[in-house]
Design a protein around this nucleic acid. Structure first.
Lengths: 134, 134
DNA sequence: CTAAAATCGGACCTGTAAATCCGATTTAAA
DNA sequence: TTTAAATCGGATTTACAGGTCCGATTTTAG
């Protein structure tokens, strides 16, 4: 469903949200806790910083922290930087242009499901997932 | 949403369904029509034969045709052989075990959408998509 | 019977996502 | 002021899905 990288990003953000306002968390610690290759997580977090999802604190006792309150952070903001913009996964058969006007064979029947997926990522916030599961 | 290979499979099956009972269609013709690399489509079709979705006719004027009536062919049958069995895409965060009992943070909120996706592929048939779009 | 046209299927190549490595830079504690 | 600990960021390597190639086999048209 999500690329490996997008999944890492989501897990990292969820982890930081759980920490609340406890200052920045180092990549090494986070990676160890989440079971993600540290140097890869480092890059992934850097991308999230560029997209305004995280803030980085450099130097000693630095690390990463959320840039926004969890209530304002939608899952789409976390995941989108790692999904190909062009293929908004709207067409099941991989058409470049697939709309109500120029529909592929699957368009009509797939539409409802496709829209529910998009709505999930657009409306669900990080706060909505906090405190659930473990 | 679907892997490239699964998408090829679905398009090929839809193409054969549109042909109706006009005998087997050669890979070369099908690939040209669909814009799929011929030798790759060949392998993809071979997998579908092994899974009972297609039948192959060897020798001169051979090719592939549907093994079942379109009404009996569910999209899941076409697509599943090309998706990893283990990660049934049920867990957004990539957990090995994620269920109502052992839930990840996203489980509860993701469940409805996840089930709608599964239901779509399980219940929609090739016949449902026939004659739609182009 | 022969030859052409097709699938079969294994070995090989390739492009890209995933992961690693390492030096430069920044900062705070000692 | 020095040093340790952290991010930054580009170059490189690895793993695997995607794609190619080709010889063997099968079958039918002529």
């Amino acid at each position: 469903m999500l690329s490996q990288t997008a999944e890492y990003a989501l897990r990292a953000v969820l982890y930081l949200a759980a920490r609340g306002e406890t200052g920045a968390v180092g990549v090494e610690a986070m990676a160890g806790e989440l079971g993600i290759p540290p140097s890869y997580l480092s890059k992934t977090c850097q991308v999230l910083v560029r997209h305004g999802v995280l803030e980085s604190v450099r130097g000693r006792s630095g690390g990463f922290r959320l840039a926004l309150a969890p209530e304002r952070l939608r899952l789409a903001c976390v995941v989108d930087p790692f999904e190909d913009e062009t293929e908004r996964r709207h067409c099941l058969l991989g058409r470049a242009t697939c709309s109500d006007q120029h529909a592929c064979a699957a368009h009509a029947s797939w539409k409802a499901t496709s829209e529910q997926i998009a709505r999930y990522f657009r409306t669900t916030t990080v706060a909505d997932l906090q405190g659930r599961g473990r």
